[in-house]
């Protein structure tokens, strides 16, 4: 009898896990806000990492393959973050915000990608790239704070 209860409980937990793993998430407005804020913060973190890696490399405090690995990891991470958020079905009242956040995310991904490309070429102090990363970091933090 005890065993049967345990099995049922386990089955319940497994079922709950399965439901939470559906291909497309459909959160309500509050949950979406939270997810978006989290994604924006994660993206800001990757942008700041890229920025720090380039700056350190420009001062010749780190060798090239180290910079490449750090920046490439940041790129991979930010792509994952952006993709995961893009796959979330925005609730009815949030389509506009979702578009804004999506655009900002795309901008961040593009900048980090461009920065990685520069880093691989050994061009660490491209001012346009650094400025864009700086602006992005602020924009992402602001957007995350607004959620």
């Amino acid at each position: 009898m005890k065993l049967r209860g345990l099995t049922a409980a386990l089955a319940g937990v497994l079922a709950a896990l399965l439901c939470s793993c559906s291909l497309v998430e459909e959160p309500d407005a509050a949950a979406w806000d939270q997810q978006a804020a989290q994604a924006l913060e994660d993206a800001a973190s990757e942008v700041a990492t890229t920025r720090l890696a380039l700056e350190t490399a420009a001062q010749e405090r780190v060798w090239s393959s180290y910079t490449t690995v750090v920046v490439a990891d940041a790129e991979e991470a930010i792509v994952t973050v952006a993709d995961n958020l893009a796959r979330v079905q925005a609730p009815a009242g949030r389509t506009e915000q979702a578009a804004d956040v999506g655009a900002l995310m795309d901008r961040a991904v593009a900048s980090v990608r461009a920065a990685r490309s520069l880093a691989v070429q050994g061009r660490y102090d491209d001012p346009a790239s650094i400025d864009e990363l700086d602006r992005l970091a602020t924009d992402l933090e602001d957007a995350a704070g607004a959620r």
Partner: peptide
């Protein structure tokens, strides 16, 4: 202060590079 979260080993070593440069790294 920069809001960076750590997810890679490369990040773990980065502060040492900032402080001490290539030899420290």
């Amino acid at each position: 202060p920069q809001g960076i979260t750590v997810e890679t080993l490369g990040q773990v070593g980065l502060p040492v590079a900032v402080a001490l440069g290539k030899i420290g790294l």
